[in-house]
Amino acid sequence: METKVKAHVAPWKFEEVKTLKGLIKSKPVVALVDMMDVPAPQLQEIRDKIRDKVKLRMSRNTLIERALKEAAQELNNPKLAELANYIERGAAILVTDMNPFKLYKMLEENKSPAPVKAGQIAPCDIKVEKGSTGIPPGPFLSELKRVGIPAAIEKGKIAIKEDKVVVKKGEVVSQEVANVLNKLGIKPIKVGLDILAVYEDGIIYTPDTLKVDEEKLYNDIQLAYQQAMNLAFNIAYPAKEVLPLLLQKAFINAKAVAIEACYVSKDTAPDILAKAYAQALALASKLPDEALDEEIKEKLSSQPVVEEKKEETPKEEEKKEEEKKEEETAAAGLAFLF
């Protein structure tokens, strides 16, 4: 008769899963963060900065997965269990009341520059800029040349002759390149808590969704608002933001019609009188001097002289062209007589 051996599970693991489940249930936003590459001093500094806004707990990946699935089952929330699919590397549970976008921004702002290590994948192009290194001549000059960095001795120091990309984004950093970058004091990466995924209200957000270009977003919203205002104004949509402009336009149009129709009101009277005055002066300017009194003559003399260029109508142009042709024909006929 075969005897089944029951696997022994350490009691502390049950307690850890219980603690993690309590943490998961305590806040509406649950995140998985990767903290594998964060040095202990920087991790402690980050935790001190965010302590009042989030709760963070490191644990084994297997226990985090178990806690997520059990919490999801107890809450009857299958979507929460899917968060376990994003566990990788040195994962930790983070819970907060902050919305996922604010959480992502806060964690990004609390990252700090760090040297790159051999074997790491470059998160961006790593460039060495030209200029003096401040390092005296020695073996380091050869090290620079071995990794493809043009260098020479200038004023008793090693100088880099031109800007050089030593590692492209996505490439693996070699040991030689890592050594050179460290000696130059170049810290091309930022270390901190990297979000793997965030759960909130039935939705799982990944870093590519949470990374928002705020300036572009602001400009897009501003442009959309302006376009919406223009459309609403042109179709006379009576929104509260558009109504003042529509009323202003209606007033201007109504006043223009009233002035043209000589409808006298307190708003149009000054414009109608000004229009009548201008027309009267224009008419007076067509009359002979003896028909005008001194006051009118004085007013006419003070008016700017505008020379109006008389445009010839197409018929007048055609008539002149025909007259010109007739003159040319007559001239040619006279020439035959001699």
Rank of each mutant, 00 (worst) to 15 (best):
residue 2 E to P: 15
residue 13 K to C: 06
residue 15 E to I: 05
residue 15 E to K: 11
residue 17 V to H: 01
residue 17 V to E: 06
residue 17 V to Q: 01
residue 18 K to I: 05
residue 20 L to P: 03
residue 20 L to R: 02
residue 21 K to W: 02
residue 21 K to Q: 09
residue 23 L to V: 00
residue 25 K to L: 15
residue 35 M to I: 12
residue 38 V to I: 12
residue 41 P to N: 08
residue 47 R to C: 14
residue 47 R to D: 13
residue 51 R to H: 12
residue 51 R to N: 13
residue 62 T to Y: 14
residue 64 I to R: 00
residue 64 I to E: 02
residue 64 I to C: 03
residue 66 R to T: 15
residue 66 R to Q: 14
residue 67 A to W: 00
residue 67 A to L: 00
residue 68 L to I: 08
residue 68 L to F: 07
residue 70 E to P: 01
residue 72 A to M: 06
residue 73 Q to T: 10
residue 74 E to H: 05
residue 77 N to H: 12
residue 79 K to D: 12
residue 79 K to G: 07
residue 79 K to Q: 14
residue 81 A to V: 04
residue 82 E to F: 07
residue 85 N to T: 11
residue 89 R to L: 13
residue 90 G to C: 10
residue 91 A to Q: 00
residue 93 I to M: 02
residue 94 L to R: 00
residue 95 V to T: 13
residue 102 K to L: 06
residue 111 K to N: 01
residue 114 A to S: 15
residue 115 P to G: 01
residue 115 P to T: 02
residue 115 P to H: 00
residue 117 K to D: 14
residue 120 Q to I: 08
residue 123 P to T: 02
residue 125 D to Q: 02
residue 127 K to Y: 08
residue 127 K to Q: 12
residue 129 E to Y: 14
residue 131 G to Y: 05
residue 133 T to E: 06
residue 134 G to V: 07
residue 138 G to D: 02
residue 148 G to D: 05
residue 148 G to V: 04
residue 149 I to D: 05
residue 151 A to K: 01
residue 153 I to A: 06
residue 153 I to L: 04
residue 154 E to S: 14
residue 162 E to F: 00
residue 171 E to R: 03
residue 172 V to K: 13
residue 173 V to M: 07
residue 173 V to I: 10
residue 177 V to K: 00
residue 177 V to L: 02
residue 178 A to M: 09
residue 178 A to S: 13
residue 180 V to D: 03
residue 180 V to R: 01
residue 181 L to S: 06
residue 181 L to T: 02
residue 182 N to F: 10
residue 184 L to M: 00
residue 186 I to P: 08
residue 187 K to N: 15
residue 189 I to S: 09
residue 192 G to V: 06
residue 194 D to A: 15
residue 205 Y to Q: 01
residue 206 T to Q: 11
residue 206 T to A: 09
residue 210 L to R: 01
residue 211 K to W: 11
residue 213 D to I: 04
residue 215 E to D: 11
residue 217 L to S: 10
residue 225 Y to S: 12
residue 226 Q to W: 10
residue 243 L to C: 12
residue 246 L to V: 03
residue 246 L to F: 04
residue 249 K to P: 03
residue 255 K to S: 13
residue 257 V to K: 13
residue 261 A to L: 14
residue 262 C to Q: 15
residue 265 S to H: 10
residue 266 K to I: 12
residue 271 D to M: 12
residue 272 I to L: 07
residue 273 L to R: 09
residue 273 L to E: 09
residue 280 A to Q: 08
residue 281 L to F: 07
residue 282 A to P: 07
residue 282 A to S: 14
residue 283 L to P: 07
residue 285 S to M: 11
residue 290 E to V: 14
residue 293 D to R: 03
residue 294 E to G: 01
residue 294 E to F: 05
residue 297 K to G: 07
residue 297 K to I: 04
residue 298 E to Q: 14
residue 298 E to K: 11
residue 298 E to C: 09
residue 298 E to P: 08
residue 298 E to G: 15
residue 298 E to D: 13
residue 299 K to Y: 11
residue 304 P to K: 06
residue 304 P to S: 01
residue 307 E to S: 09
residue 309 K to Y: 08
residue 313 T to R: 07
residue 318 E to R: 02
residue 326 E to V: 09
residue 328 E to L: 11
residue 328 E to S: 06
residue 331 A to G: 10
residue 338 F to A: 10
